[in-house]
Amino acid sequence: MAVVRQLAALWRRRQLIRTFLVQDLRLKYRRSSLGFLWSLLNPLLMLTVMATAFSVVFGRGTGPGSFSLHLFACLLPWQALAGSIESGSRSLVQGEALLLQYPLPKVLLVFRRVLFAFVEYLFATLALSIVAWFLGFRASWALLWLPVAVLLLFMFALGLATVAAVAMVFFRDIVHLVGVGMRAWFYMTPVLIPFDRIPPEAEVYAKLNPAYHFVRIFDDVINWARPPETATLLTAAALAVASLSLGLYVADRNEHRVVFRL
């Protein structure tokens, strides 16, 4: 019930979400003279640096299953997740002026940040796929799974970001925990390590990390050009639904409390 109520509230304000998105994009690309290019340069440089540095360990190869393609497939979704949670978690605290001026659904401010992170992901992926082509990336039927992967990751990210955003209203110092937590989480997720290099005895523990399953889908679809395994897909879907439900439930419970603690 709470979940439906919150989704309906978002749907009712879709005009506003669109306006926010257009303006967030404009702002982002206005801030520097390089504009749009600059925003693509950042993931490109990051990718290049990491691919070069870790190729010493994982080999310099290209093509399906190579480390460089694995990085291309997994780093950008990870950044979308991390960016969503870091920026989304601050959205309510930073949105004080708006929330005390207009009767807005609280989850809308979180949604705005998460949506923006994912739009950036799409731009970066499109642009970097040209670079990835030189690394042996080729379009395949498996890519039809990509929208599913993105949607599941989006739901997962929105749920977690909403919980963190509400928590941050009540405990402001959570902002530090989120930063440190995301960094730790990054190293626990197979982004810098290819999936086939995880020691077999550690596999069980690696799978306890929810992000494992999401990143795995991206790796299968983009790096290996093969459809994701059913088990991975179902696990990710279950986690996505659970996270989003929890987030919307928390938002609904606190819909009327947040404004008093801003």
Binding site: Q15, R18, Q23, Y102
Partner: peptide, 18 residues
């Protein structure tokens, strides 16, 4: 945001299409 963008946003916040 610029002046125009702020006016558009205020409208959107009030529920008026851009």
């Amino acid at each position: 945001l610029t002046g125009v963008e702020n006016v558009i946003q205020a409208g959107a916040l009030l529920g008026i299409p851009a």
